[in-house]
Nucleic acid binder design. Structure first.
Lengths: 240, 240
DNA sequence: GCCGATTTGTCCGTATGTATC
DNA sequence: CGATACATACGGACAAATCGG
């Protein structure tokens, strides 16, 4: 919960954009005007604006001003920019989430697993298979590897609720960055066993490595989604 | 081509990380040390570090230092963070690119197109269908809509080379931000006509809206990729 | 456990450059 | 040309987290 000044300005402007207090294509107040409005320095205003730019909410134009280029996103969207747990995104979309633990094991990384996950060979890991359902429909099959040394005391019981709640709440670990790769792969027998694939023979697959604030990788996950409930959004900016 | 000081520091550090001058999990020099090394202010160093953080290259740790968390990416990767033309990414991956223009038309956006593309109804557009091949294999089918008012004088000839080169080079338009949505969809008859889908019945689909530096949307594109040659990478950071 | 040195995080004020109008 | 607006850069101040003695 940051109480930083730039973050307050960021959130305030963000809300004003989302609620169309500033409309699409409208200019925001100039930096100078925002300085007066929020009683702060120019750097602080600029930091808030920089974050809105990275979010794709606004576009600064040299010598002209800052334009609102936000258009509301579609509601079915599953994943957006940040790091979100399954539970969080379900909540955001007002859906009922349910998680079933299919497998729970303690393993040691061999050469093959080490190569795949980014953990060093010989590392002690938890391996889980979990099935996520939304509004009663099983849609996502997850293969998780957690670093046992850091994610101590994980149980099937915890895994059936929110592991992220446990990591951040109980263990007090701060989740920092996550590197994700998105691919499309053939369905497997395991996929078909648990998920009604209709006539799709592919899954949307997100593999991710997640790091805590000490730069230690504590998770590798492969998340397999049924195509028709999968959507991933992103904003890119071009480097000059 | 920015000649800004922070950008020089950013590139220099980035290269040192990629070439493992700094190794994985190693600490970078402290901000103070970097100030001396680059003869600049702390803010300038911090800006460079902030960009590396956003790239997922390093992780700053309060009171401790900045850690290198970069691991080399896989080579087959098609799209990374920024905005890249087909030609640019092919070049980066040392592949031979070829583009065939299947359709070239001038149209006016009706209600349906307006809703899909984000252009206003009645807008004059170019509509193209293009097939991209890598090393002789047709892999990507693109449906492009360009704002005629801005992307003046587009021809099939230009479209068979690089439209982005034309936009940035000839027209002097600066490409600023691009909003992308990634989904997985069934193959269409058009897909199958031009692309050897093997046993896949899905395509990886990127739809994107692209804006110039005046905040004007000049492009809507749906880019359909054969699954086995598609990979999308991303780094996310968790907001505290 | 305390204290001081180091390191990153936030914020401020100012100066100068560049693009737009 | 001058006024306005964003872009870069500098230097300084204090807070917060970490670490070693």
């Amino acid at each position: 919960m940051p109480k930083a000044k730039y973050d307050h300005i960021y959130r305030d402007l963000k809300e004003k954009i989302e609620t169309e207090y500033y409309t699409y294509q409208e200019m925001l107040p100039s930096e100078h005007a925002l300085i007066l409005e929020y009683d702060c320095s120019r750097n602080t205003v600029r930091r808030a604006l920089a974050e809105l730019t990275a979010d794709g909410y606004v576009q600064p134009m040299h010598g002209k001003g800052v334009r609102n280029i936000f258009q509301p996103i579609e509601q079915t969207s599953f994943t957006v920019g940040g790091i979100e747990s399954f539970k969080e995104s379900a909540l955001r979309n007002h859906q009922k989430a349910f998680t079933k633990v299919l497998q729970f094991a303690e393993i040691t990384a061999d050469a093959k697993i080490a190569k795949k996950t980014g953990f060093r060979e010989g590392t002690e890991l938890y391996y889980l298979q979990r099935l996520h359902s939304l509004d009663g429909k099983p849609l996502i099959l997850n293969h998780n590897y957690f670093l046992k040394e850091l994610i101590k005391g994980l149980t099937p019981e915890i895994a059936s609720h929110s592991i992220y709640d446990y990591i951040e709440g109980e263990l007090g670990i701060t989740i920092a960055t996550s590197k994700r790769t998105l691919t499309v792969e053939h369905v497997t027998q395991v996929d078909e066993k648990y998920i009604d694939m209709k006539d799709y023979n592919c899954m949307a697959v997100i593999t991710s490595q997640t790091f805590d604030d000490n730069g230690v990788q504590f998770e590798f996950t492969q998340s397999r989604h049924r195509p028709d409930y999968f959507r991933f959004q992103d904003v890119a900016t071009r480097r000059k």
